Computed example of a mutant assay.
Amino acid sequence: MTANHTGIGVIGVGMPAMLHLEAFGREINDAFGHLPYLVGSAAKTKTWRDVDVRLILPDQEFDALFPQPAPYESPDGLWGLLCAALSELAKLRTGLPVDFQIQRMTYANERYPISHPRHALGLHDRNGQ
């Protein structure tokens, strides 16, 4: 999986929102065993419409949770419900307009190659460590 992390506070959401995103990332990691990523425009600039957060699961784990009817079709209702519910939770916890999605690793890597930054969320605790 392609990922990088440039450190707290240097991404477009600023402080203290980044601290809240880090805490949300730790909760996602506790639940799924994988860190989510800040992606999209908020990962690159202070000009953004929403804050894209993606949980990228290994293909086998994604497929076990969300069997797909055909390659690259939208997963089932559970996927939609989880994405919507976690988006709302993230909005409540962070105060940001979060668009949270769970993605299959192969899909994420093909659609968003290395030129699209991914900043791991949840690596830092409240003390920035």
Rank of each mutant, 00 (worst) to 15 (best):
Met1Lys: 13
Met1Tyr: 12
Thr2Ala: 14
Thr2Gln: 15
Ala3His: 08
Asn4Gln: 12
His5Asn: 14
His5Ile: 02
Thr6Lys: 15
Thr6Phe: 11
Val10Ser: 09
Val10Asp: 04
Ile11Gln: 07
Ile11Pro: 00
Gly12Val: 02
Gly12Arg: 04
Gly14Gln: 11
Gly14Pro: 10
Gly14Ala: 09
Met15Cys: 05
Met18Pro: 02
Met18Ser: 02
His20Lys: 15
Ala23His: 08
Arg26His: 10
Glu27Ile: 01
Ile28Ala: 06
Ile28Pro: 11
Ile28Thr: 10
Asn29Val: 13
Asp30Glu: 13
Asp30Ser: 09
Ala31Trp: 01
Phe32Ile: 12
Gly33Asn: 10
Leu35Asn: 13
Leu35Val: 14
Pro36Val: 15
Leu38Cys: 05
Val39Cys: 04
Gly40Thr: 00
Ser41Thr: 01
Lys44His: 03
Lys44Ser: 11
Lys44Arg: 08
Lys46Trp: 05
Thr47Tyr: 07
Trp48Asn: 01
Trp48Met: 00
Trp48Gly: 00
Arg49Ser: 11
Val51His: 01
Val51Asp: 08
Asp52Ser: 00
Val53Pro: 04
Arg54His: 09
Arg54Trp: 01
Leu55Thr: 06
Leu55Lys: 07
Ile56Ala: 09
Asp59Thr: 04
Asp59Phe: 01
Gln60Phe: 10
Glu61Gly: 01
Phe62Gln: 06
Phe62Met: 08
Asp63Asn: 13
Ala64Trp: 01
Ala64Met: 11
Ala64Gln: 12
Leu65Tyr: 04
Leu65Arg: 15
Phe66Cys: 02
Phe66Ile: 01
Pro67Ser: 05
Pro67Phe: 05
Gln68Ser: 11
Gln68Trp: 02
Pro69Trp: 02
Ala70Tyr: 05
Tyr72Ala: 04
Glu73Trp: 03
Glu73Thr: 14
Glu73Tyr: 02
Ser74Ile: 08
Pro75Val: 00
Asp76Leu: 12
Asp76Asn: 15
Trp79Gln: 07
Leu81His: 13
Leu82Pro: 01
Cys83Thr: 12
Cys83Ile: 04
Ala84Met: 10
Ala84Asp: 12
Leu86Cys: 03
Leu89Ala: 06
Leu89Thr: 09
Leu89Gly: 02
Lys91Cys: 14
Lys91Met: 13
Leu92Tyr: 14
Leu92Thr: 12
Thr94Ser: 09
Pro97Gln: 12
Pro97Asp: 14
Pro97Phe: 04
Pro97Met: 13
Asp99Cys: 14
Asp99Met: 10
Asp99Ile: 00
Phe100Ser: 07
Phe100Asp: 04
Gln101Lys: 15
Gln101Glu: 13
Ile102Gly: 03
Ile102Gln: 06
Arg104Asp: 10
Arg104Ala: 09
Arg104Gln: 13
Met105Cys: 08
Thr106Asn: 06
Thr106Leu: 10
Tyr107Trp: 15
Ala108Asn: 05
Ala108Met: 04
Glu110Trp: 03
Arg111Gln: 06
Arg111Val: 06
Pro113Val: 01
Pro113Ala: 08
Ser115Thr: 14
Pro117Asp: 06
Arg118Trp: 14
Arg118Thr: 06
Leu121Thr: 12
Leu121Val: 09
Gly122Phe: 09
Gly122Ser: 08
Gly122Asp: 13
Leu123Asn: 02
His124Arg: 07
His124Lys: 08
His124Asp: 05
Asp125Ala: 12
Asp125Lys: 02
Arg126Gln: 07
Arg126Val: 10
Asn127Ser: 14
Asn127Ile: 12
Gly128Thr: 12
Gly128Asp: 13
Gly128Lys: 14
Gln129Asp: 11
Gln129Ser: 11
Gln129His: 07
